[in-house]
């Protein structure tokens, strides 16, 4: 379970002229086994919010509690161990270009000091799981976007995380490929029991895979609930705008 309590994030807090409040008093609970969608327009603060979960970004105030453990102030080795327990995938895949597909997947295991034989065995299993068993010795440049994101998913699963963060994981992909990647994420959620936190600006993506969603606007959560409920009875103006019910929000 991920509990986010009164979380605020101000960038450049020490410089009044450049200070920018990206998140304001966020309260959110993500249960084990959820596929939790965080939806919002560009600049709403989505990335900042998920990056606070694995502390790539330090909250300015508030707490982040994972499985009952307050992780907000972790540092040093404990912080690295926390991050290793949380998988992450990205919009641009972020595969290491000079590493083969296999060695991309073994990367997190190398960090943990797993033996070579063991990590390669695990990587081959994961590549089978994501449907890329034949591509172990390829390099990222030789793969399509969808294939690259599959490798990234295999890499994120290497450490057997209980949580996976997806920052716009399908935004760079076409509709068909997006659909396939979402199916893969769904099966990972259902079969491996991985809790998924998924950022998107697409209502269609959220609708396809999330059981719960939160809508974020200007750094604040403006609506949260069961996906079906939120989509059927949107309350906040931003939700309606994203659903295309009311006219576009004025910029």
């Amino acid at each position: 379970m991920i509990e986010i309590k009164h979380l605020s994030k101000t960038y450049n807090a020490d410089d009044a002229a450049r200070a920018h409040q990206a998140l304001v008093d966020i309260d959110l609970t993500i249960d084990d086994g959820d596929v939790f969608g965080i939806i919002g327009e560009s600049g709403a603060g989505k990335s900042t919010l998920v990056r606070c979960i694995n502390l790539l970004e330090r909250p300015t105030s508030g707490r982040v509690i994972i499985d009952g453990q307050d992780v907000t102030d972790l540092s040093g080795k404990q912080l690295l161990e926390l991050r290793a327990r949380i998988g992450m995938i990205f919009q641009n895949f972020s595969l290491f270009q000079q590493r083969s597909v296999l060695r991309n997947v073994t990367f997190p295991l190398e960090l943990a000091g797993t033996s070579k034989a063991e990590r390669e065995k695990r990587a081959h299993e994961l590549l089978e799981l994501v449907g890329l068993g034949d591509y172990a010795n390829s390099y990222p440049v030789q793969l399509s976007g969808g294939q690259q994101q599959r490798v990234a998913i295999a890499r994120a699963l290497a450490n057997r995380p209980s949580i996976m963060l997806c920052d716009e994981a399908t935004s760079a992909l076409d509709t068909m490929t997006t659909h396939q990647i979402l199916e893969l994420l769904r099966s990972i959620n259902e079969e491996l029991g991985v809790t998924i936190v998924l950022i998107t600006h697409s209502m269609a993506v959220a609708d396809a895979i999330c059981n719960r969603v939160a809508v974020i606007d200007g750094g604040r959560i403006v609506e949260e609930g069961e996906t079906s409920e939120v989509f059927a009875h949107p309350q906040a103006q931003m939700t309606r705008a994203l659903l295309g019910i009311e006219g576009q929000v004025t910029a």
Partner: peptide
Amino acid sequence: DLIEAAQSFGASTWQIVYKVYLPE
């Protein structure tokens, strides 16, 4: 982005230098 990906997997500064920066 690669540096950030490595950080997200819990890589230490030293690991990022010799496993990401130098090989890439």
